[in-house]
Design a binder for these strands. Sequence first.
DNA 1: TGGGAGTGCTTTTTT
DNA 2: AGCACTCCCA
Length: 731
Amino acid sequence: MSDLLANLNSPQLQAVTLPPVHALILAGAGSGKTRVLTTRIAWLISTGQVGPHGILAVTFTNKAAKEMTARLASLVPINVRGMWIGTFHGLCNRLLRAHYREAGLPQSFQILDSADQLSMVKRLLKNLNIDDEKYPPRELCHFINAHKEQGVRAAQAEAYDNYTQKRVELYAEYEAQCNREGVADFAELLLRCYELLQRNEPLRAHYQQRFRHILVDEFQDTNTLQYAWLQLLAGGGAKVLAVGDDDQSIYRFRGAEVGNMRDFERDYCGNNIIRLEQNYRSHGNILAAANAIIKNNRERLGKNLWTDAGEGEPIRAFEAYSDLDEARFIIDEIRELIRDGVPATQCAILYRSNAQSRVLEHELFTKGVPYKVYGGLRFFERQEIKHAMAYLRLLGNPDDDTAFLRVVNFPTRGIGARSLENLQASAHQMNSSLYNAAASLTGKAGQTVGAFIRLIEALRQETANLRLPEIIEHVIEKSGLAQHYRTEKEGQERLENLDELINAAATFVDDDGVVMSVEGEGGALASFLAHASLESGEHQAGEGQEAVQLMSVHAAKGLEFDVVFISGLEQGLFPHENSVNEGREGLEEERRLMYVAITRARQRLYLSCAQTRMLHGQTRYCAPSSFLDEIPAELLLKLNKRAAPEPAWSGRAGGRGAGTGTASSGRASAGYAAEPMPGGLRIGQNVEHAKFGIGVIVATEGRGGDARVQVNFGGCGMKWLALEYAKLTPL
DNA sequence: TGGGAGTGCTTTTTT
DNA sequence: AGCACTCCCA
């Protein structure tokens, strides 16, 4: 017991050993949040206050859930496997599987991921003959999800205008279609679970009695429905320990309600609020910058990070001429750091939007620096994997139209759009699934589709007595997928991924074999399918060993690095103009994002911006981010003293045309007029031009490849010239 | 059926 | 600029 609590600081200790009360832990970045959470559970169990059975611990990501489970296992000698530690979706899925009948779901209901949901909505619009320009499928998905996350069914949805009325009708159609197919989207897992507990008194009482302690990670990210779900489960006297950081709430755009923290405090906590403010990650200057930024936000519960690690290095600031110049600066610094012995994996480049990675990647590639970009396509989202999974889904549930349509003609077997239209029409008429309706097709279409149905039936029979990895292997081979990718020129990697899928299934069976056996071997497939939907897998196969880490600020949340570069600190980009347009709330969220970005750094932090940036195929002139002004100057070390990285007139590809005078939005070179332009040109400088003769520079604008000067050539008049093209000789 | 041309969009993202 | 998506033709 004593070692469990050893080395906790005073507020941490206080949090871990709280009596059974509702409490809110305001855990700053790097303050040992996960440690507190896991130690709290370990302490509750090892002091005999509750059995592992009575704990419910909720996270947002599988990664967090896994980490919590692993750390708990290392703290107390208990079997953590059967414990209810998981994501909101994972736990709801578990509950719905256990009570599928009461929840009105088929035993092996499938889970639609976002892509599946989108394709279902598109299909629905098509079947109902609705113009998808007027009702964009993506927007409709959002409409549906937003309602579900508010706990609102189509039947209760309010329609204040005709347009919304129509969308509500479509929402209802979508619900009906999901029910026909026996599938549930992500939001449905939560809502269905919530409704089940609300409606079914004995079931609710059972779980309310069972869970004595509910612990919630990243509480600031909960949405309305998740909060309601927690309240419902806690209704029988369970105590809720909510851990979160309002300053790190960066998911408002997907429904997170920071307000839940304040509500929870007001309605449940009383005085039980503990602040974890000692930071064990970053040096003082970095924290000072973070604190200086975040204190400009009005809506805060209040918290101030501190460290006893000392000030550390100053924060390095660099203003580049262009995005390319910025990338060069960053990569040069990184190469130097690596030479000095900093592991590449400890260098992270963060950006506000993913599109910014391109220039950086190009430069890294050119210089031969290994790097890894986070945020791409993930394993279970790859087309070959989704195809294989679709076959598997059809084995478990033939009514799954999404799966049916995905593979009915893949690999191609002569089933064209016309046949499918007929099929969909008759399915609609019969109010049945496509699979079911296939039997009614006649003629040539009947034959081809019939062959597909027979294929699926054959697969089902052939795999009936196989183990999960063998089932998958068999399906990949006999469906024709393997053959298809063998003949495709780019198919090699896809084949490898399919092999990897078989491996994943083998590992899955080994890892979860105990749980699986409860449901029988027949349930293994269903469990694996759910697993695949709920856990889309690591971002990319093959973890980069010694590679610089590139990711969006959002993706960096929860991570830490010795050296962090925050790039693209420009007004309009970071803070993003779309957010700024949303008013104070939007700007405050951007500021929290900046706060998250800064607090990722342990030892060294670089902030950089560019004066011009290629955006949507156009060069944009940018002012430095207002966030830079919010950091006290004494914390900053400005690195702009260095010489121009390239001779002004050697030029680079991709500049804009000479003298086209693209309106530079706002700021030309304000604040830099006194500094020399590249090549030593400055205001007042006399120059000679081959055609216009001798002149004097009266103004300058931009830097690098886009630098322009205004020259008074006397009789030849006043001219704006792009240094990249115009040959000017200083006199 | 599949590929090539044309069109439009473009913040952040987990489950 | 780059990418995803659609449409149309061979």
